[in-house]
């Protein structure tokens, strides 16, 4: 069952399209990553889907409702972590969550127990009655996350959720988020610059550029689809050959493949401009010329490589 469905969703600010022809479907229980540079349209997408901004074209449906007509009903079932933590520094953690609970229609009696529960989950129990200005950056971010999840939302939007966190805290957020999604059947949309994070926790990702969706799929699909290009662009393939055969191997490869560039070092050849699919051809070429190969190292392609390839000048405007 789809939780979010948009079709050619478009939103302008003046002449500039912040989101253009965005068509995505996100299923219940998914962790969906929305990737893109600053200004790519990630935050505007969240605002459109929660009914804070109205669209200028296309259609959208969230939790079976229309954000433009049913904004309050959608927001009641949604938790949003804004890019800035949006916490009032003069308040305590307890008051922040209590007032959040009241605004979301929680019965006052039920609130203290839930506060205790979420603060414990984010390791903030000792900070319950501390003013927020006294908390560290990481604690503030965790408190903002606790607030986002306080009212047990079905749909969670997280805008740069771990940007202020150290690796340990980041890992705990990942664990907590995947736990919430699995145990409560929630759906999460994670906007992030952190591509390792997206690769680690997202079931699928969409890459936005200038408001347009330029890639969509699981991290594995995107990596497979673009590994050829990404490998060629960024990483040399290493061939370990006997030192006495290195010069001859260079000559052979330069003659056989005019586009590749070969560098020598003490133990191996660094071959630039070779995609994964071409590695067997290169091996065959060397073997035919009786050059022995001890090892081949094809660097693994990450989502970061895919992302960089998608945003490379060669792909601009596609």
């Amino acid at each position: 069952m789809s939780v979010i469905r948009t079709l050619q969703l478009t939103r302008y600010f003046g002449e500039k399209a912040a989101v253009k022809d965005l068509s995505i479907t996100i299923e219940r229980g998914e962790i969906f990553g929305l990737l893109g540079h600053n200004g790519a349209g990630k935050t505007t997408s969240i605002r459109l889907l929660t009914g804070i901004l109205s669209g200028h074209g296309g259609t959208m449906e969230v939790l079976g409702l229309s954000p433009e007509k049913d904004g309050p009903a959608i927001r009641a079932r949604t938790g949003v972590l804004p890019e800035t933590h949006a916490l009032d520094e003069r308040m305590t953690a307890f008051d922040t969550l209590r007032l959040h609970g009241l605004t979301f229609g929680w019965a006052p009696r039920a609130i203290p127990a839930r506060i205790e529960e979420v603060l414990a989950a984010f390791d903030l129990s000792e900070q319950t009655h501390q003013r927020i200005r006294r908390l560290s950056k990481g604690m503030k971010q965790r408190l903002a996350l606790a607030r986002t999840l306080f009212h047990r939302p079905e749909l969670i939007f997280l805008d740069e959720p771990t940007s202020a966190l150290d690796p340990v805290a980041r890992q705990s957020v990942h664990t907590f988020l995947t736990g919430v999604v699995q145990s409560e059947g929630a759906t999460a949309v994670v906007c992030t610059h952190n591509l390792n994070e997206a690769q680690a926790i997202c079931d699928r990702v969409g890459v936005l550029e200038n408001g347009r969706l330029i890639a969509l799929g699981t991290p594995a699909e995107l990596i497979a689809g673009l590994s050829e290009q990404a490998t060629r662009a960024d990483h040399p393939v290493l061939f370990e050959v006997p030192p006495e055969e290195m010069d001859r191997a260079c000559e052979v490869l330069k003659q056989a493949h005019s586009r590749i560039h070969v560098e020598k070092n003490s133990h191996s050849l660094r071959v630039h401009g070779v995609g994964r699919a071409q590695v067997p051809d290169v091996v065959e070429c060397l073997v035919q010329h009786h050059i022995r190969i001890y090892a081949i190292n094809v660097p693994p392609v990450s989502l970061t490589d895919v992302y960089m390839a998608l945003h490379s000048p060669r792909n601009a405007g596609q």
Binding site: T50, I52, G71, P72, A73, R75, A76, T78, V80, P82, T84, A86, L87, D88, E89, H100, T103, F104, G105, R147
Partner: peptide, 14 residues
């Protein structure tokens, strides 16, 4: 100014 408004906008109020 304090950048706290956005959290308020995401509440289920009309």
């Amino acid at each position: 100014e304090r950048k706290t408004l956005e959290a308020l906008l995401y509440t289920p109020t009309t």
